[in-house]
Design a protein around this nucleic acid. Sequence first.
DNA 1: GATCGCAGGTCTCAATTAGGGACCTTTCGA
DNA 2: TCGAAAGGTCCCTAATTGAGACCTGCGATC
Lengths: 138, 138
Amino acid sequence: MTTLPESNLGAGSRRARIAAWQAEGFDPHNCPVRSILDQITAKWTVLILLEVQEEPKRFNMLLRSLPDISRRMLTQGLRDLERNGLLRRTVFDTRPPGVEYALTELGRALMTPLLALVDWVAANRESVYDSRRRFDEQ
Amino acid sequence: MTTLPESNLGAGSRRARIAAWQAEGFDPHNCPVRSILDQITAKWTVLILLEVQEEPKRFNMLLRSLPDISRRMLTQGLRDLERNGLLRRTVFDTRPPGVEYALTELGRALMTPLLALVDWVAANRESVYDSRRRFDEQ
DNA sequence: GATCGCAGGTCTCAATTAGGGACCTTTCGA
DNA sequence: TCGAAAGGTCCCTAATTGAGACCTGCGATC
């Protein structure tokens, strides 16, 4: 497993944070950031987080909001997010029982950088499309 | 294809930007943001961007920095990033010819929100690990 | 009192995608 | 004459994903 290089994280407090990791002793072949980043940026987890952001949603509601996700992938994405502490799963004792997924505090905190990234993409999408068009013309 | 919901992007200028897209007329089943976001957050592209960030790198150099990437995936990741206008590919007429990959202006701009996300993960990794441990105990 | 529908899943199988590694091309040096 | 190096491509296998049938338990329907 490749480790994120120190220099990636920029100057100042970021460097300090990395120095701290190394002091704690971590295995460069098992980078702790990557295992989290991979799950956070996985195809469906980003979309799920965006859906759940404004208000808690239930399983079948998510299935309807994300028409091209399969039940299997939705289940797995929700489990991953729950396991990572970003989503809370609440079962309601109704007939039939309902299950609601909501952001945790940690999940809510994540939305700040995540929305910034989504917003950057939204703001720059024309540049990207232009580039793709030029590239595909060759 | 699922479209990112308007509410995802928060208030103010973000909403305005989405309103602008809709005015331009876009197909909700072919969301333009997702097709970009999927490529930017794909497993290897993030790592490649982080590697190339500080200084241009060559193909085999990247292969060495990312020990667990395959040649095939590196090639494909580099092509995607080039196509999206985030990376510039430069061939040097040496013997044998060398190829260098560098961030474009657009790519450099992307690093701001992308590094913020990486940094969030780095800062909060212990919380995530704690949550995983608790989840796995059940 | 059979059956339909719903909620929230699981399971199986087929299709897509990723990884491993051999192979290619050109040129230099031993 | 052989090997190495750079930057890939190609093929085959392994892993991941997606489509969709099925499950469970209960309440309402006919």
